[in-house]
Design a protein around this nucleic acid. Structure first.
Length: 293
DNA sequence: TGCCAGGAAAAGA
DNA sequence: TCTTTTCCTGGC
């Protein structure tokens, strides 16, 4: 457990004695697209059909718009608060190269997100940049999700499989998905007709899960690793995007090593904690804009 | 205007 | 099996 106790107040809940939890680290490490930083430093996110606001002051974490029961049923796992990140970080800190990244992103946690939303979101992420990905997901949600009010603003839930199955290719394309629209359309349909089942895929062992996800149109090794790591608790996954590639080359490997070799090297080195290592490396590389050569 | 960033698919070697 | 080209969009 990475918190000591929980209390309620009129607008939500307060967690006390929270460790290994930094809002910027959690929400800017590339794992999620529906959390946005506010002017006061809080983050507001649309998750699980709700709008949630999170605030952190020293070791206190306030979560607005949920009650204690909802926290215990859902949000505690969503924020991965039952895991002791200090143990993971201790193992990584034995490696002086990784230690730099771990110290830099010391408050990172891996959110346990919803498989369908993550599958569609990471198909959209391919060959795309984070602001564009966020915009496209927002467009999809505005068109097919449900509106929710929070503090006078309207937010939209992520659409369900049935919601998106009704959308035409042109409709999806109009949400600025570009060439990825057909991948989304095809994947939604496969899931809708039961040709593929994300809950079943989630129940498989890591390597089978990885291969099953790659069968979808628009999902290659990197996107597959993201989906299994961020929504299926497959922690041996090691998504190699440009930033992780740079980080691995910077810290460990020759500058011309191929993506599959980087993945194999990392999974061999970090084992079933590879996914956690990837998050620290990604955050360090991207925030520090590291360059090779 | 042209060029760049960012992964998967499909064609090519 | 590995390498190259194409896809789309916004920002410089």
């Amino acid at each position: 457990m990475d918190y000591e106790n929980i209390e309620s107040f009129n607008e939500g809940i307060i967690l006390k004695g929270v460790v290994n939890f930094e809002l910027d680290h959690i929400f800017e490490c590339g794992q999620c697209f529906r959390w946005n930083k506010q002017l006061d430093g809080n983050y507001i996110g649309v998750v699980n059909g709700k709008v949630i606001e999170v605030e952190k002051k020293e070791t206190l974490v306030k979560i607005y718009n949920i009650n204690e029961e909802e926290f215990n049923d859902f949000w505690c796992d969503y924020f991965d608060l039952k895991r002791n990140y200090s143990l993971i970080k201790e193992k990584f800190q034995a490696d002086p190269l990784l230690e730099r990244s771990v110290n830099f992103g010391h408050g990172i946690r891996l959110l346990q997100q919803e498989p369908f939303e993550l599958t569609i979101s990471f198909i959209i992420s391919s060959n795309n940049r984070i602001p564009m990905i966020k915009r496209a997901i927002n467009n999809l949600s505005q068109k097919w999700g449900k509106p929710i009010e929070y503090k006078g603003e309207t937010y939209f839930t992520f659409p369900t499989v049935a919601d998106l199955e009704g959308a035409s290719l042109e409709d999806i394309q109009s949400c600025s998905l570009g060439f990825r629209a057909k991948y989304v359309k095809n994947t939604v349909h496969q899931i809708y007709i039961g040709e593929a089942n994300l809950e079943f895929i989630k129940s498989c062992d890591d390597d089978i899960c990885h291969e099953q996800l790659k069968k979808f149109n628009g999902i290659g090794p990197k996107v597959s690793d993201c989906i299994m790591l961020f929504s299926m608790q497959k922690y041996s996954a090691f998504p190699v995007d440009v930033w992780v590639k740079r980080a691995m080359q910077f810290f460990y490997l020759a500058p011309d090593v191929s993506l599959p070799k980087i993945r194999v090297f990392a999974r061999d080195k970090f084992g079933n904690l590879a996914g956690f290592a990837q998050q620290y490396l990604f955050y360090y590389a991207r925030e520090n804009n590291i360059k090779i050569e």
